[in-house]
Amino acid sequence: MGASATIAAPGWRDTWKHVRYVATDNPVTLGAFALFGFFLLLALFGPWIAPYDPLMSDTTVALKPPSAAHWFGTDSLGRDILSRIIVAAQLDFGIAVSAVFASFFLGSALGCLAGFYGGWADRIIGRIADTIMAFPLFVLAMGIVAALGNSVANIILATAIINLPFYIRVSRAEVNVRRNAGYVEAARLAGNSDARILALHLFPNVLPPMMVQISLNMGWAILNAAGLSFIGLGVRPPQAEWGIMVAEGATYIISGEWWIALFPGATLMLVVFTFNLLGDGLRDILDPRTRT
């Protein structure tokens, strides 16, 4: 039953029914969708929502605990933490989305080629993936950003590279099992070029498992970007970013000013949690077999 759902285009009506079933059956997924929407709003309209200018420092109110004026308190320069968290959503989401999509496009292109042609293409692409996987991934990302220089673009590049193997493997496997399927043969006999067959007949099958991978990876990409910023790679102060904010708050936590690190850290956690729940939920929707 699961296989047919991915091969033949399932009626949208059925898909929608299934989505509704999963959503009502599993309120956690529904909650994750709601939270995701909320964070998306923050990312899109953050600068207009934020009550203060995220960069404006005011030393008269430095290191103030949460109050009615500053819900999440202020940091050592008197900047409003809530505003910084809201504005940072754009940057963190931006990094994650760009990185994940970059590795999605490149990874599935390489994976499709490897799965479709096999032979040398497969061996070379496989070796690339293996070489990336031979590093502890976060360490490789550190090495890349350190070599290329501290910038947001390089964080995106590094995150994209370390995610690449997952996409290559998933798409390679999907294409490989289908490359000799009847409908591919038929398309070939009808005179379609390899590129056309790959793009129109094989690639669509890769999408459903990729969706799950994307949403699981998104959380991981955010964690990675924040981790890199935390150790001083990539985004630089005074720009607002969750990882940096936690790093800035770290020095104060020992002396009891907990709010500086807590709120951005908790936000980061919640966002990643949302993506992971979403990934699990999507898996339930797209692949009912694996439900446990």
């Binding site: 964690l223 936690v246 936590i253 850290g265 990643v272």
Partner: peptide, 18 residues
């Protein structure tokens, strides 16, 4: 399990220390 992979290690570390 889902919450665990969502934890930014540097943040949990700080929290535990605090």
């Amino acid at each position: 399990a889902t919450a665990g992979v969502s934890l930014p290690t540097f943040f949990t570390g700080l929290l535990l220390a605090y």
